[in-house]
Design a protein around this nucleic acid. Structure first.
Lengths: 203, 203
DNA sequence: GAACATTTACATTCAAAACTGTATGGTTAA
DNA sequence: TTAACCATACAGTTTTGAATGTAAATGTTC
């Protein structure tokens, strides 16, 4: 095969990732072969083995794209309005997270990670799930601590429990929704749950 | 091989299910072969193909064991004390659910269903997850409606939203915990979340 | 800047392993 | 005697990783 330019090579790498995303989503990770991915991208397994070490490596590269730290959502909100109360900031940041979920690619990769893959030879998707969750937890906790310092939280609610409540609720919601995104609107139902949660939490 | 008595045959069927449970849990469903399951039970693939049609059939038989309708938890609570307020009934039923999760077999099968299996040829674990969730939802909703009729719920909280909040929160909690049951005590953390949720929900 | 050498970016081919489903065989409970 | 219960043997497919081929892009030298 003729050698491609660096830009073309990068493009085929992207094409492989996109193909993997689609086939993984459609058939699950375990039941898709590298052959199928390559063909779906109009290439052969040679290309796959050139750009990635193996299936696990390809999977890792795919999931690397979905890091959604809570911090960036907060920044997004703070930039729009710097004078928000901590609870309102959390509320809006959660809403911003829902908006991001409307991006189809984002949706598919998250769905693959949560519902369409198992163990791997040396890859453990559960660890990735946990890592992403922990990052968000730490960042949200800081804001809830701020809310408590300003005496905005109910007296019988600690920042730790508040954070866990939000995390678990959102996590469960995402799981349910990604299982069947057509069943209901995530912005609508998620928005309701977020708003009522925050409302119940404030003093 | 010599023919076994009916009781012995039933015992080997159970042994196969138990072996499947352990190997599925340890290696994930996709990456375990029927050979491995049979050997782990001290048998051969012949036994597997006699008792089950194929891997999907074996998987179905395994998951059939974990139906946990919310109703049975409520009954369990009602039997202990018939004069409970609806909110207290829900609270105790959720606690009872946490207790059931301590049963190792229960834990493993649920973990397989949630985290250790993908699609199948004709089996879709996501449908099972959804079905189990929906059953619990309907039953819990009824009790929350009762709570509203007795004016025990916050005025700004509908029974539907209350139910969804509890469901999502518990679902997210289970997912997190089953990912790594050693990380924290489900009864402790789950108990906290349940209690605070109910407390925040009441008028 | 032209000629040459070297990599790159894949396609193609090959051997090996793993897994499945079925078919067959043997023994004993019914 | 029959057929349940399971072991064993067999054929077939699928997938993987590595080896090999190759033409163009890139680097190097003068």
């Amino acid at each position: 095969m003729a050698r491609k330019t660096k830009a073309e090579a990068a493009a085929t790498r992207e094409a492989l990732l996109e193909a993997a995303e689609e086939v993984f989503f459609a058939k699950g990770v375990a039941r898709t072969s590298l052959e199928q991915i390559a063909r779906h991208a109009g290439l052969t397994r040679g290309a796959v083995y050139w750009h990635f070490k193996n299936k696990g490596d390809l999977f890792m590269a795919l999931v690397e794209q979905v890091r959604m730290p809570f911090q960036s959502l907060m920044d997004e909100v703070d930039k729009a309005d710097a004078e928000l109360s901590p609870l309102e900031s959390i509320r809006l940041a959660c809403h911003a997270g829902l908006v991001r979920l409307e991006q189809p690619s984002y949706q598919r990769i998250l769905s693959i990670l949560l519902h369409r893959c198992e163990f791997f030879s040396d890859i453990n998707p559960l660890d990735m799930q946990e890592q992403i969750g922990n990052e968000c937890f730490e960042e949200m906790l800081n804001v809830f601590v701020l809310a408590e310092q300003q005496q905005l939280l109910r007296e019988d609610l600690s920042p730790e429990i508040a954070t866990r409540l939000m995390q678990s609720m959102l996590g469960g919601l995402f799981h349910d929704w990604l299982r069947n995104p057509g069943a209901f609107s995530i912005r609508e139902r998620g928005g309701e749950l977020i708003d009522t949660s925050i409302r119940m939490m404030q003093r």
